[in-house]
Design a protein around this nucleic acid. Sequence first.
DNA 1: TCTGGGGTCCTAGGACCC
DNA 2: TCTGGGGTCCTAGGACCC
Length: 450
Amino acid sequence: MRDEPTILHVDLDAFFASVEQRDKPSLRGKPVVVGGVGGRGVVSTASYEARAFGVHSAMSMAEARRRCPNAAFLSGRFHAYRESSERVMGLLRGISPLVEPLSLDEAFVDLAAAGLADTSVRGVSAFARELKDRVTEVTDGLTGSVGIGTSKFIAKIASDLDKPDGLVVVAPGMERDLIRPMQVTVIPGVGPSTAEALRRIGVHTVAELEEVSAEELVRVAGRAHGSTLYQLARAEDDRLVVAEREAKSISVEDTYDTDHVDRRILAALVDRQAVKLAERLRRSKVSGRTVTLKVRLHDFSTHTRSATLPGPTDDARTITRIARTLLTEVDTSGGVRLLGVGVSGLADWIQEDLFADSPEAAPTEFDEETSATLASLGRRQDWSPGMDVEHDEHGRGWVWGSGRGVVTVRFETAGTPPGRVLSLPTDDPALRPWRPAPPDAADVSPGSGS
DNA sequence: TCTGGGGTCCTAGGACCC
DNA sequence: TCTGGGGTCCTAGGACCC
């Protein structure tokens, strides 16, 4: 909480729909709905003309069609959105070194770092009016709503108060008066579940929330969430504007028009997603250690299974094999409506870049040499789960680690760059000759490898 | 023709280590 | 001869945001 209103929040109005109306004059003044056009799509953005019919984001596309049959229903052109977004973010970064994008259409700007001469309410208001004009200029006609306050929390609430094309500056000292009459759902982090929990203890407004002790809020909402609620109810918010945020995970997911049951089809769909994911990892020049498979079943229940490798990977084949193995751990017999594959535990993977251009860098198939390596490993007969760093007798590859049904083998052969890791499900046919011996025959007990 | 796709953060339990 | 306590990593699920 600062003593001057120097945190600014910009929110582009009905962003996706506005870009469509800008680029297609025939859509101007008409209801436009952007979202998933498949049978199970939902609304991303509705133009203000469509909102008048009760269409709003997150509503099912089917419901939107019912409410506003004459709207234009569009699936979205993300290149165009990204392009306009980048222009706005570029403009903001010219103003202040501290710009924190929240999504394509939203950002915080720290005006204290912008070197403004006058940071009074009057000064920042004049500044914001100019900024709004420049947003419209660089985007060829889009408008944004701006909120300014002494904290992120207040700035964000302010930008929402006068949409579209709004500008609200909350004067220092007025924060608590502003939020007291509001519903608790204005607090970021209070969604349907928390709102219901609060309703059960008789809390609907921020003023009522203020009356609840910190201990009670922790009991109702959990440790971290409860104490945040206690502070935000009093408009206490010291969160900084953070310019550079590293991604923590990357994922791909798809909802299908009809549920899938066939395991071979499910496996093929997972393959496709793994390849797409690997492409995105390489494009972003990162790799990750933990692969997660997400499965949403016919009843909308969602299940995840994950496996962590000893080292990071961006290899499509590796991700595919793990994801497929994870798929076998989920009961999909009732039908699957969504599949997703993601990678987390991201790291820069410099070794990968060194070899990115050499065609032989990636062992995407089991070539003869690889198979030979696996076979030679197989003859050792002394590997057990949990064991790591076991050379084969030719020094060409070794078991690096294992976990949750996945064995990771590291290769160092003529065609394989250092650091390349290949992971295989423990039931992979290629490993069959040297799978761990049954417990009664083994002279090492599983899990006690080293 | 209920309920997207991309993310973030939190919780809780168990394994493991010192 | 009967049971520690803290820290970290991993996994699964859930709430939430745009």
